[in-house]
Design a protein around this nucleic acid. Structure first.
Ligand SMILES: [Mn+2]
Ligand SMILES: [Mn+2]
Ligand SMILES: [Zn+2]
Ligand SMILES: [Zn+2]
Lengths: 137, 137
DNA sequence: TGTGTAGATTATAACTATTCTAAAGTATTA
DNA sequence: TAATACTTTAGAATAGTTATAATCTACACA
């Protein structure tokens, strides 16, 4: 459980109080060997499965937004149905499986760097994202 | 007004009856010299401005979906706030101005083709979209 | 050219992801 | 320990979208 101390520090550093709920969310988001993609609904279900106690949707939204603001997770634009989040915060692109509604990482060695030969005056680039939609053939 | 005949034909060919409302929507979507990006809300406002008669939201949604299914317009994934549509149906990528909530076309000569060196078994690629988010600097 | 009918429009209700509210609870600091 | 600021929570509100069902219209054909 020295991970718990890590989470407390992580939360402290970003100005968040280390409450029971936030630590539980940290455990789910950051304890796995693998990064993963989730919607708020997904996360809520995972919490229910792994815990007897429930965490309210409002707290899940608030915490996810706080982590997003701090850069602990990323937001992925897929469609207008719902937001998707990613615990892999490195720059990378995605496949989106339209049949399974699932995001799949594209690793850097699997895609050529995207070069944009144009600038918008007065604007700076915040992110470059490639989304490859796939479906059953 | 020989554009009207075009629209009637266009609608007929795709199995849609050329109703007054659909022709009005055609005029707005396809009469301009330039292609453009819009949300349903944008389109609804444009209709109100250019017409005394109102078209119900349900009809706007239905018509936009019909045109989308027929490939007369494209859908662009930006975020989960709302859907964006594009009257430019060619393959192309976008800047998204986060301050103005506005899409800007990236032309083919402004970006290198995106090469994905990986396949998902049993899946075929439906689209490859690059979204470059920009903000004021 | 009138008429029946399939298809279209509309107002409105329903749905769902997200955000807001305000009351009750908790962590922190003095 | 007590005061304070922050957090959680249930539930209400909001907003984009979709479904419903009554009314209307385009048009094939008599
Ligand atoms: Mn929606
Ligand atoms: Mn929404
Ligand atoms: Zn990812
Ligand atoms: Zn475009």
């Amino acid at each position: 459980m020295n991970n718990n101390l890590n989470f407390v520090q992580k939360l402290r550093i970003s100005g968040l109080r280390p409450t029971k709920q936030r630590i539980k969310i940290c455990e789910i988001l950051f304890c796995g060997k693998e990064t993963f993609h989730f919607s708020i609904n997904d996360l809520s279900k995972i919490i229910s499965q792994k815990t007897n106690e429930k965490i309210s949707l409002a707290t899940i939204y608030n915490t996810v937004h706080a982590f997003l603001a701090k850069g602990y997770i990323k937001q992925i634009a897929v469609n207008s149905e719902q937001n998707y989040y990613d615990t892999n915060t490195t720059d990378h692109h995605h496949f989106y499986d339209e049949d399974k509604n699932q995001l799949i990482d594209i690793h850097d060695n699997e895609v050529e760097p995207v070069k944009i030969n144009r600038k918008i005056p007065g604007k700076k680039i915040k992110s470059i994202e490639v989304l490859v939609k796939v479906q059953n053939n």
